[in-house]
Design a protein around this nucleic acid. Sequence first.
DNA 1: TATTAATTGTGTCAAATTTACACCATATGT
DNA 2: ACATATGGTGTAAATTTGACACAATTAATA
Lengths: 245, 245
Amino acid sequence: MTTYPHASGILLALDCIIFGFDGKDIKLLLIKRNFEPEKGNWSLMGGFLHPEENLEDGASRILFDLTGLRKIYVEQLGVYGNVGRDPGARTVSIAFFALININDQDDDALKFHHASWISLDKRPALIFDHNEMVLQAIEHLRYKAAMHPIGFELLPEQFTIPQLQKLYEAIYAVPIDRRNFSRKLLSTNLLIDTGLKDSYSATKKATLYKLDSVRYREKFNSFWNFMPEAKEQVEKGDAKATVNK
Amino acid sequence: MTTYPHASGILLALDCIIFGFDGKDIKLLLIKRNFEPEKGNWSLMGGFLHPEENLEDGASRILFDLTGLRKIYVEQLGVYGNVGRDPGARTVSIAFFALININDQDDDALKFHHASWISLDKRPALIFDHNEMVLQAIEHLRYKAAMHPIGFELLPEQFTIPQLQKLYEAIYAVPIDRRNFSRKLLSTNLLIDTGLKDSYSATKKATLYKLDSVRYREKFNSFWNFMPEAKEQVEKGDAKATVNK
DNA sequence: TATTAATTGTGTCAAATTTACACCATATGT
DNA sequence: ACATATGGTGTAAATTTGACACAATTAATA
């Protein structure tokens, strides 16, 4: 600090907004804070940046601590630094946006931190400005999903098109036409047919695909509008009409 | 700090990537640093966050200091915090993305800071990780402009469609078809015809429009792909063909 | 003052994309 | 075997985009 005598140090926190998908709803991984201030209240998982650690490494450390997972998809979301946001001290927090496959994480680690997966629409009020962070993260998720096929991080490595569609429908809370979605997705040539079929589905087995990661990186910036216009769109005729004959 | 005894303070810097447009090229506002380390070298304008100041206020303070302007368009771009990025001390820097109308700023303030507007493609190497910040800012500018009609902050309050087109062409370094651009833009109903004509243009006066800010905010998230496919597209026939007769 | 050069504004048509559907296939349980 | 539920492919109409021609306006100039 001798180089910059007039500057004063500030506490730098890292907070993670962690999304998961259970096949039906988008969920958030939240913890019950076990230290003061705000002990016992719901919060994002976070921690302070270590003096000898890079930002993304700090975020990964915190995510590993909570989930037992390495190589989680993380990106910066924004910085929150309003004076007084944390009554304990002047802290500035970097919010990280993380996507994980809900089935991969370590349940014991979760229990240890009093963490739970909570549906977006049932989430409790959070401490400090964590509510704002979550809102920004949701907006970011929608924004990205609108023009890129993202969300693969939220699904197993092998997934079906109907699964991906349900994810998109959850992100936007809007029904999407099955056939148009499928066509658009396939036309990207981003999915590789594994030749396998989903063993879980109760009726006709859906094809399992995996992401062509190389192509995905290359094409990521040839954006497509990925969302259909958000208007009511109920499946009429079609299946119903096929009943009897 | 008594609340968080295990956390240690870190220096928090704010650096601004400032874009301007002179009607032809996108320019960056850079300064010659007048203190150590790296004294005399090209740098982004920056400063340290004050202990009692919000982040955006800090950025605005720094921008005002350099340009003499209030109410500059600013948004967060990202945080740079690699260990060793600043050899003087462990500092973490928040990069801010700013757009200003190049004609508005105060020349005296610029001189005081040894600041210059420099075309993107002629920019010198910058200190620390400022080069990365600029690259990210350019990418951000292109990304945003690809799906939103942005850039109004880079133009005067009243502007013509050809001006806006030149801005887009500068952002992407790609020629755009005049008629298709105009049609697409007008179809958004985002521009209000002021009834006035551009007095500067040498030939036919172009219509001056202003932005419908209310509608702009409302429609911002009904994204359109705003960029034409980036392929060579030369105007053939047309004007040339009109020569003689 | 009529002509020329440069630039702006509007229109048109073909191609590509999107939307809104129908139909068929496959698996399961009765 | 058949009813039911879900997955996969096709197609015609509507909309949007891309690639152009042509007419209008202004200042300089012949």
